[in-house]
Lab assay of single mutants.
Amino acid sequence: MAAGGDHGSPDSYRSPLASRYASPEMCFVFSDRYKFRTWRQLWLWLAEAEQTLGLPITDEQIQEMKSNLENIDFKMAAEEEKRLRHDVMAHVHTFGHCCPKAAGIIHLGATSCYVGDNTDLIILRNALDLLLPKLARVISRLADFAKERASLPTLGFTHFQPAQLTTVGKRCCLWIQDLCMDLQNLKRVRDDLRFRGVKGTTGTQASFLQLFEGDDHKVEQLDKMVTEKAGFKRAFIITGQTYTRKVDIEVLSVLASLGASVHKICTDIRLLANLKEMEEPFEKQQIGSSAMPYKRNPMRSERCCSLARHLMTLVMDPLQTASVQWFERTLDDSANRRICLAEAFLTADTILNTLQNISEGLVVYPKVIERRIRQELPFMATENIIMAMVKAGGSRQDCHEKIRVLSQQAASVVKQEGGDNDLIERIQVDAYFSPIHSQLDHLLDPSSFTGRASQQVQRFLEEEVYPLLKPYESVMKVKAELCL
């Protein structure tokens, strides 16, 4: 049975990233139509530049190519590739079939990587351009969430054990800070992308030097003109047959890092959902379990974690691919890159769409948070109580021993009897502590235990987050809708 299948058929496997999760716009960027249309555009740009620099290419040939950029006979191309065992030459023939007058000058002087690699770089750039505003929107939604809850005390956790208090907004800023680093890295790697350009079979530009009869300047002009037509500021000066596969490492490393950030955020949300302090959106008709109707599973956060793990592992592909590119190139890269580049971007696209949807509907339960604080705060307040007693004339050592005994009794009630923490009640009825009984409410005010959390939130948002989001103001209103 021949390899390949009808990918629109229910009898043929289709990647869930495309069929179930990723956005239509990201799927289109990695589609065959987008790819092969870009090949034709690159052939047109090459012909236009070659004509401008004096090669015998007519206006009629150029116009014929322009008129057929979208006229792609995919069936013919597939048949040609089956016959020739070469995808680029299959599309040269297919393009030439609908451009008979231009057929002889299509791909003039070029090698397969002229269309293959340059198209990949265009796709990487455009895919990054799709991700950047999506990530900015996630940051914006979380920034709104953090600002609104900047002063809401909550129990902090280290080692997932109760620690000092923080605020809900401050905790959210930990998430935002990681995503801001990801946004900066995505922008950097996007701006650092260079075009492969017009380089020939081993990167020496020998074929173009021959076409222009040894004119170095025209060869350099050709490279520059096509690079500018493709919208790049610069091209690699040095290439082998391909652009260095280190570029793929750079791009997928940034995406993998984004995956790590999203995994951490969504894990926190899942843990908070278990504590009943916070939940992701839950639709009115949504079913959490087929057997347990009360369940409210954090399905979206779980999906993000599941896909983020996949995204983090994909960076190993370009690392290994770059390491086995012998001399000017081997074909070890080809099949692998067809999979890992598309999957990385479709996965990143999915987790950003999902995280935006989550961040637009996060639900906080202040009463649950308050109750958990009441359970733990008495123990945390013991040092403040000791200091207040010393100020009232008591002995630190005597007070410490009193607190120690009462704390152990209260802990026994919590752990052995399943009761509430009654340390404060014990202190309130103990005559030894009568000098500070009137101060206990103040000493137990949760806001006095959150330090500068709310001020940190305000400063972080104003100095770091809002300036970073400013270039994306025009796209901030787009909502994230999930079908599944």
Rank of each mutant, 00 (worst) to 15 (best):
C305A: 08
G259M: 04
N421F: 01
R33K: 12
R374M: 14
S334N: 11
V168W: 04
K477P: 15
P366E: 14
K170V: 00
E213L: 14
E60T: 12
L444Q: 11
R303M: 03
A22M: 13
N297H: 02
F30K: 01
E213T: 14
K224L: 11
Q325F: 12
P378E: 02
K35P: 01
T347A: 13
T313G: 11
A392T: 12
G54N: 09
P56N: 10
E279G: 06
L461H: 01
K391A: 15
L142Y: 12
G451E: 02
L46K: 02
P100E: 10
P435M: 05
H91N: 13
V262N: 02
L132G: 13
S23T: 04
W326N: 06
I386D: 02
K264L: 06
S395I: 00
P162K: 00
A230I: 04
A150Y: 14
S207P: 07
S31K: 05
V364T: 07
D178W: 00
N274C: 12
V251P: 02
I176K: 04
V138R: 01
V29L: 14
C305W: 02
D144S: 15
A3M: 15
E213Q: 15
A49Y: 00
I385E: 02
R371T: 06
D332C: 02
P435L: 07
I339P: 01
H91M: 10
I265H: 08
N118D: 02
A146V: 06
S359H: 12
H310Q: 09
Q184L: 11
D144F: 15
L186C: 13
A291C: 04
L128F: 09
N353H: 04
C173S: 10
V88Q: 05
I427Q: 04
N353R: 15
V29W: 04
P281N: 11
P435H: 07
I139Y: 06
L275P: 04
H91R: 02
Y466D: 13
L183T: 13
M389K: 06
I351F: 07
L53A: 10
K415S: 06
E360C: 05
V390Y: 07
E462I: 12
I72N: 08
K218W: 14
E481T: 14
L165Q: 11
P366Y: 03
T347Y: 06
L341A: 13
T227F: 06
N126R: 10
N68K: 09
E462Y: 12
K295P: 04
P24Q: 14
G197S: 11
S290P: 03
V414Y: 03
K479Y: 15
E80W: 07
L440A: 06
I106C: 05
L124A: 11
C98M: 12
V168R: 01
M380Q: 08
H97K: 13
R309W: 05
